[in-house]
Nucleic acid binder design. Structure first.
Lengths: 230, 230, 230, 230
DNA sequence: AATGAATGAGGCTTCATTCAT
DNA sequence: GATGAATGAAGCCTCATTCAT
């Protein structure tokens, strides 16, 4: 994946294969950490286990990471962008369907990473981590917020939309609903969630309008007509 | 529990104060546990610290609780009902305002307990606790779901409401938004959240109608005639 | 049993019943200690358990015994004489049968006391206890030794009897064989053991002679006659 | 075990000494355990002490043994065969002298091990250990029993020998007498003990006969010849 | 650089003993 | 005297981290 940066020196020096191998090891450790952390939690995973899972010696762990916590931080930083949702495009397409698709993909990513099982364990006790996470969330929120703002300015949303609250609501729903699963009694229905979110944002007429006009969209201010057949 | 016998006789007789003091001590330990757990997390809090914080010796801890985990379980069980939201009454009053109030109160309770800082830490690794928590959530969800169902049957909600998804969305929003605070960059605006939730449930006309007619409400579906005294 | 000493003051003073009750409590504690020690071992028995088993409060234990060890010492001292074997009378009767009976009774006593389960646990680490026990054993040994000596002087035993070794052998056999039980695969056969011991001491002719002459025993020095059909 | 590979290469290569050193450390811990257990008893010896005595850190103890008990078990299992007495050969030689020698050697082994100070402490409370020990004893008993049986069938023993009781008696005497020492007031006299044991088994004539004929032994049924000058 | 044995602080828990009632 | 709650030292064991090879 990110191999490219690591390999920038290929062919330049005999030491390169060494660096390459080192790089692989680092990657293996990160991956082992990810897997074990999300399986058994951060506190319940020992450095030794991570090393063993990555097929290196205990001591090697500490050549690549100054401590267990750092591995987690790297893990999170490395994958920050994967927490970022794809640019949510409210306007140009059938927002419900688009959102449903985006949600599903995003959730698959989240589940693949599995870090949502670890973060809550540490957030309260690790201010730095909390800060990092808060940053990601803020960016995520900001991006949602910005999209909503544009939509609002074009007159597509409810007039009285509280951008901030809606953005956080969307963020929370998209973050937490996928964490649910059979064991909690709810299997996320992305289409339904998507509809719910759209209803938080758009009056029903707009959704109809968007869907019918597809591209010839005219951004008139919404006026309280109502025929919410959906 | 031993409350009644224990408390009413304070000062009357040596034997009773003994029970009373034991009761107080137990309470002090629970409270110390609650405070320290939500301050520093479960794993980072030692039994010794809890004892010290409650002004008792280490060993005393183990007279009242067989181990650290049990204290947490008691903490949670003792306060389960506080996790339950008050009966959400969608129909009789201005639902937005009522919901806003309920949310605010509920959130204050949650924040006072502070257990939402601890639970995520343990949930993945403690199946029993997870089960207990899942139960509470399911009940909460069911109660929300039931309220929504009644409203839907009366024709007050969007016709195509996916009760399950909406109920879980409401649960998630009411559970997670209050956990946010200045540090995450969002100070919950209960009125805005309330409006968002109502929009997930009711078409705007219904809300207007409810608000204007207050009690002489005619529930057309919207034609559904109705007198939802509940 | 030993109630008499305890009751010497009966009727003299109102305080006497108190002393009586105290005495009963002490006895109950000793008995509880005995039972629990021989069931679960000394280290594995807590003062609290002993108190509970004797139906007194933990603290009461320490009114009667300065510590756990003292209870054990009392137990042992109280019952020292029960470790002493009955005067073994080699000469006057059918020694085998007599010995068999004595062994059986002694072993029953030992098993009732059950202390042989406890002593080995402590002996190596408690010089005082070891001394006490060694004393008992020495006395036991001396008494056996003395009996053997008399028999030897009367010419009833093997000529070259090593009194010391034989006495210790008898002591060891009578002490250890009864500790065996079904779980070790040997159910003590007292008659056989008795025969073995007699053979260690007496030439077969003497045994025959003793048995036939019963009381008109003439203690002539044993001269190698032999018909050891037994 | 790792003995061979481990030892022969000392100093040759870094990897081997590593195993060697680990092996040495394990041995040191076992030895420290042995010494401390037999000095102060099992319960009174802490893992920390054992580690300290072996000049390693507390944690190192747990690299080699999962807990204190396991060290003891290893100790015992490692040395089981040393509890087994050498094949007791009743027939071919002067049984008394041979037995005396065997006893002495066996006792030296036992005393070197010193485990007889520990075992009684644990036996009552540790069924697994008890089982292991009982096994060893049963084997020991069986081997003695078998030897006796052969001798009996050849007509060398008392006719009415109760094999089981005699075998257990021999086992008990050989096991317990050596545990005695100056502190108990008896310094084992192996020759005397040996004579006692032989008397439990053989009529005096047989002993004489065995001694005189040495190898030209004719296994005729014992007939009361007698000249038990010893 | 890699290894994995070694370290030892620190958590959990028990229990002999004390002490307020 | 009696009670049983309280005490806290001390044992067991884990695991993050270091270090000799």
């Amino acid at each position: 994946m990110d191999d490219q940066e690591g390999r920038q020196l290929i062919g330049e020096f005999p030491s390169v294969p060494k660096q390459e191998r080192a790089y692989q090891k680092r990657k293996a450790l990160l991956e082992s950490g990810r897997v074990l952390f999300s399986d058994k939690g951060y506190e319940n995973t020992t450095a030794k286990e991570i090393a063993a899972h990555a097929n290196v010696a205990t001591g090697t762990f500490y050549r690549y990471f100054c401590d267990k916590r750092q591995l987690l931080m790297e893990l999170i930083k490395d994958q920050l962008e994967r927490y970022m949702p794809p640019e949510p495009s409210w306007l140009n397409h059938d927002p419900e369907a688009v959102l449903a698709t985006l949600l599903e993909k995003h959730n698959q990513r989240l589940n693949r990473l599995g870090l949502h099982r670890v973060l809550p364990e540490l957030l309260p006790h690790d201010p730095e981590l909390a800060e990092v996470l808060a940053d990601v969330r803020r960016k995520l929120h900001d991006s949602i917020h910005e999209g909503l703002k544009q939509a609002k300015e074009l007159g597509y949303t409810w007039e009285d939309l509280d951008l901030d609250s809606v953005a956080w609501s969307i963020l929370v729903l998209t973050e937490k609903l996928p964490e649910m699963g059979p064991e909690t009694g709810y299997i996320p229905n992305y289409h339904a969630i998507s509809k719910i979110i759209c209803r938080m944002v758009f009056p029903p007429e707009i959704l109809l309008q968007l869907r019918s006009e597809e591209k010839g969209l005219t951004g008139n201010n919404y006026t309280n007509g109502c025929d919410h057949e959906i």
